[in-house]
Amino acid sequence: MYSLEHKKYLKKIRRNSILVHLTQILIIALFIFIWQFAANNEWINTFIYSSPKSILETIIDLYKDGSLFHHIWVTFYEVIISFILGTVIGIVVASILWRFKFLARVLDPYLTILNSLPKVSLGPVIIIIAGAGVKSIILMALFISVIVTIINVHQAFISTDSNKIKLLESFRASKCQIFFKLIIPSNFQNIISTFKVNLGLVFIGVIMGEFLVSKAGVGYLIMYGSQVFNLNLVMTGIIILAVMASLMYYLIVFIEKRCEK
């Protein structure tokens, strides 16, 4: 049984986190309320800023003509494919660079340059190579996410405590054993945070790609909306993106929690 102090302590922690959640909900509710209020009283130009109500109506319309989930699905599909590809390629390349130091040193300046290059500039080239379709979008997202992944994961790998490597070497461990017994598990946290960063980057890449070439997807909705001056559609697209991003973020957090057990 816990002591009285400990129970008080637990209670305090619980109360604090409830308070944080309540405040968070309050903020979003207040935001929506003020937005709608401002729109109703014509403090803001609803043609440009839209309003929660018209966004909701737009979503319902999209749902009714069946295109809502189609667009969401297309974007989701592109994001997931690019995310998986980007993460896997990034981690594999980083592992190869960890294993072959010479290669890592040779490639270092090229990675740095590629990393700072604004990847949108590759857009036209990608479209010419991969055609105006889903392939281009995924390629775009890959370009944006993979370089950062390589650099971050490799950096984490080579910062692994050298004394722990020494310990494994004293047991005559092979490079492969060192990799799987030490490098991967000790960088688990780093890899998860790379997932999070990656997801964000892949989203940017996919939406950018959809702006450039798509026939469907949330990015397409936004682009189309802006072309026909339907700002309700644009805002709706942004809101859908925000919801998608947070859902996927929590999915990763969930996976992280599961893996830690």
Binding site: K164, K166, L167, Q177
Partner: peptide, 28 residues
């Protein structure tokens, strides 16, 4: 066969005590 006990303990934080104890056994 050498058994080297390093100056720092270098325990793997993500392994339980038991798992740390059998690290060398796993490797060999």
């Amino acid at each position: 066969k050498f058994g080297y006990m390093l100056q720092s303990d270098n325990l793997f934080e993500w392994r339980t005590i038991y798992k740390n104890c059998i690290l060398g056994l796993e490797i060999q």
